[in-house]
């Protein structure tokens, strides 16, 4: 299949990469750019482990055709740290044990980031609703809710 050049902003830096029209953003990130933070859990948009922010909005990168992000801004878990400092959410997840195997964590963090950007002080129920599309088989939901609440409360 014919390859095309895709140019977009990835974690603050412009990248150009050759892709085919059928490749998803997840394929391009993981296989071509070796940005392996976003995980391939189902390739079907149902687990949420591949979630990235596209112009600030959470999207399933496995359901996003790569060429549709031309010229746009993509943030993955690799882009959360600023100047070597962990993001507040990363600190809270780490210190409060809001993960076990960690495979869903990159997706959880991106959705939580988007939630706090829209609603800096979400209620417990608002967190549960907003995060509901992301699955964690280790069952760390309660710890994730608490970590997000702790960040919202200014503890980090």
């Amino acid at each position: 299949m014919k390859q095309q050049v895709l140019t977009f902003i990835l974690n603050g830096e412009e990248v150009a990469v050759l892709v085919t029209p059928t490749e998803t953003l997840l394929d391009v990130l993981r296989e071509r750019l070796q940005i392996t933070g976003p995980k391939r859990g189902c390739d079907d948009g149902e687990c949420g482990a591949c979630t990235v922010l596209l112009d600030g909005e959470p999207v399933r990168s496995c359901l996003t055709l790569a060429l549709t992000v031309e010229g746009r801004t993509v943030t993955t878990v690799e882009g959360l740290m600023v100047k070597g400092e962990l993001d507040r959410l990363q600190k809270a997840f780490y210190e409060r044990g809001a993960f076990q195997c960690g495979f869903c964590t990159p997706g959880m963090l991106m959705v939580a980031k988007s939630l706090l950007a829209k609603n800096p002080n979400p209620s417990r129920d608002e967190i549960r609703s907003y995060m509901a599309g992301n699955l964690c088989r280790c069952g760390s939901y309660e710890e994730i809710i608490e970590a997000i609440q702790a960040v919202a409360a200014g503890e980090y």
């Binding site: 079907d44 149902e46 609703s129 995060m131 992301n134 088989r137 069952g139």
Partner: peptide
């Protein structure tokens, strides 16, 4: 699919 194998969500 995970969508038809019903595991508990946050909700």
């Amino acid at each position: 699919k995970l969508g038809d194998y019903f595991m508990p969500t946050f909700l």
